[in-house]
């Protein structure tokens, strides 16, 4: 089924789509059917820039296991930066 399990958060970042770079302000994370990945359910992350006509979107679909690894990797990267004295 379509689980409709979705979490949203405000973020600040930039991504590159088919028409070049753009800034985004929101990340939507769902645990639902992917469009492209061959899985029944996946962690789908949409980085969104809200615009008048339509949203710009960077879409990522990860296996749940990959999503966990990514969380760990981001955490490690943040820690290393912090240890070097970078502001996080």
């Amino acid at each position: 089924m379509c689980t409709m399990l979705i979490e949203k958060t405000n973020v600040q970042g930039s991504g590159k789509g088919s028409k070049g770079w753009f800034k985004f302000s929101q990340a939507n994370v769902s645990f639902d059917h992917p469009t492209h990945l061959h899985m029944d359910y996946s962690i789908n992350i949409d980085f969104i820039q809200e615009v008048e006509e339509n949203n710009k979107r960077i879409a990522i679909e990860l296996t749940p296991e990959s999503a966990k690894k990514l969380i760990e990797t981001i955490s490690k990267s943040l820690k290393k930066g912090s240890d070097m004295g970078l502001k996080i």
Partner: peptide
């Protein structure tokens, strides 16, 4: 799929 993602985010 972009429109569907938008609708999914809106419930």
């Amino acid at each position: 799929d972009d429109i569907a993602a938008k609708v999914r985010a809106e419930g």
